[in-house]
Design a protein around this nucleic acid. Structure first.
Lengths: 353, 353
DNA sequence: CTCCCTGCTTAGATCGATCTAATTAATCGA
DNA sequence: TCGATTAATTAGATCGATCTAAGCAGGGAG
């Protein structure tokens, strides 16, 4: 007669108490069963699972969170998930965290420090057990002050962050860039440009310093006029190409900050009437999916985002278990993938033109 | 003398109680201030914020969650975030949810029903306020039974799900495919193939039925031999091309399930010695970033993932506020982007070969 | 002076788990 | 049969907010 199943009348959630009553046991015993303790008798275990099935009980983690002060929840702060590196990173980190029975809270900052601050505050309110963060450019110490104060386990990914020491997991940018230079030098190139400058992230500084290091080792002076500013994007690379082509003493080879920049740069070269891989050797960084299938295919430094994601997740789990020092660093090895875009030697290129 | 700041001795969290004591008020009043109630006096408000600042208080949402039975948390279940559509969707949904002061819990299923089931269970345990889900292929009613029982607000994105009625937000697949066909028909094509069959998702069925609809309207019979099975991916498209090229009565145009398939297909055409956009017209679906910059640039149906993300988030918020019916549907309009890959008419292509 | 507002404040119950400390039941050796 | 030991169970406090229902001033009307 009374319509208790109306829209506003929300039916009470089934609780441990209900299960206990149904199973003829106490709340405590049921709780022990749920957590897989060896204490309860087989009879009790059976009774509990029977009741859970019968009543449709759903474990209420929010209640446990309050009592245990641990939420089995990890904050993941990503600056730009449309960047394939971070997409791949996210997938593998999520997978690894899921294996460790952790839930992922996601925040996307779009490279904005303000959104990042909000994300950090929100995650601390949710009392996450730890945080994986790839900091936005221009992140200052003051922007992460709440993180520091919280003393929660944190792992920085792919970019360093002020206010540390922080745990740090990233691809080996310095070695990678150096390998790219060494590859070009081996092909006989001497005049090598660097394209794609996005200051204020450590990845940029590291890749550029790896570039310099390679040049120095090869005994070549770095000509600062052919270290090209510009955004790290397809557009950025595209717009840089004509400026490079216009130079009197045109470089014979180019290291790009990343693959998207390199692809745009190659496209720009073509619209200047130059053939990448023939007239100018081009090397990228990341090895995104498109690198292999582009025309010409792109020689690049492969940074394995999924390995970075997995290692970052594991490092965080160890940090939570207090098995990792606060300044631990993992550099994931990179390797050079030689394809067509770096194919030509400068000599053959000169012959051709 | 006593080293209370040791590693194991974790300092007690600052609570509302502490703030109340410091401000000389009761817990209740402080709580009212925090929630922006108009009841407390200005004096009280100032005192509370002063104490919060001084003590470094961080709001504990897990405690509030337990009492209010609302977590301000949304579950986001994504099958494949490396797919650009979902990456873009995720960014805009997250942004919109953040605006509504909601926190996003992310789960990535990698198109696996098993992982999806685990994700749903986990989210229900965390007592999310609502769920955005793009179901994995082959999702059956039994796989989402817990979702049904929970009676929580759910919005399906981009793919339909059994066990409904469910709210549904997606790009208009049927119209989009039909527009692609109409475009090709207008160019004079009569023999049009469909490439990229990934059954068991509604998006596939809808795009294929839009294709059929377009053909029927143009008075062209669909030749089932040139509806090509194969995975929806670069690889899938690539492998389909030679099979299509080998046909005696080769199609003059191709509709691809999505852009990645189309790009792979075009690459495959080239390795068969055919020029996409010259020998065969190709149209994709999605308008991913690469479509515009590919060689040749890809004609495609633009489905605005960010609009879908935004609409899905809003629909869910309305559902939570009980302002949306359980079977609400939003189809986001698509539009045709004509580029070079569909450039040629079948006549000029015939002349050329 | 009493009664009733209104504006501000608060004590104490509550959400649903976990944890501590203790109790009860079962087993065993002497 | 008894005390000791182990196995199984449980009552009640606890986590940190919110919410309910009520209390306490101070002012204005009757």
């Amino acid at each position: 007669m009374d319509n208790r199943n109306s829209k506003t009348e929300q039916k009470r959630r089934v609780t441990l108490e209900d299960v206990a009553r149904d199973a003829g046991l106490s709340r405590s015993t049921v709780s022990l069963v749920l957590r897989g303790s060896s204490a309860p008798s087989q009879r009790a275990v059976n009774a509990v699972f029977g009741s859970i099935q019968r009543l449709g009980y759903v474990y209420n983690r929010t209640a446990a969170n309050l009592r245990t002060q641990t939420t089995h929840t990890i904050g993941l702060i990503i600056p730009n998930i449309e960047n394939r590196f971070f997409a791949e990173f996210t997938v593998s980190a999520e997978l690894e965290l899921d294996r460790a029975e952790q839930t992922v809270i996601l925040a996307h900052t779009s490279e904005s420090v303000a959104r990042q601050q909000k994300a950090i505050a929100m995650m601390l309110e949710h009392n996450v057990d730890g945080i994986l963060i790839c900091p936005a450019p221009n992140t200052r110490r003051v922007n992460v002050q709440p993180l520091i104060q919280s003393a929660k386990p944190v792992v920085c990914v792919s970019r360093r962050m002020p206010g540390g020491p922080w745990r740090y997991v990233a691809q080996d940018n310095v070695t990678g860039s150096r390998m790219a230079v060494e590859h070009l030098v081996q092909l006989g190139h001497k005049r090598i440009a660097f394209v794609g400058v996005y200051p204020n992230t450590s990845a940029y500084h590291e890749r550029l310093s790896g570039f310099r290091e390679g040049m120095v080792r090869a005994g070549i002076a770095v000509d600062e006029r052919i270290v090209f500013p510009g955004e790290n994007s397809f557009e950025g690379g595209f717009r840089t190409a004509p400026r490079l082509c216009a130079l009197a003493d045109r470089p014979t080879a180019v290291c790009c900050f990343n693959d998207m920049t390199a692809l745009g740069f190659m496209k720009g070269l073509e619209s200047c009437g130059l053939l990448p891989g023939v007239d100018i050797a081009v090397v990228g960084f990341d090895d995104i999916l498109e690198a292999a299938v582009w025309q010409p295919s792109l020689s690049t430094v492969r940074s394995r985002a999924s390995v970075v994601g997995c290692e970052a997740a594991r490092t965080l789990m160890r940090a939570i278990a207090e098995e990792a020092t606060p300044d631990e660093e993992i550099l994931v090895a990179v390797d050079l993938v030689v394809r067509r875009s770096s194919g030509s030697s400068p000599v053959s290129a000169a012959e051709q033109s």
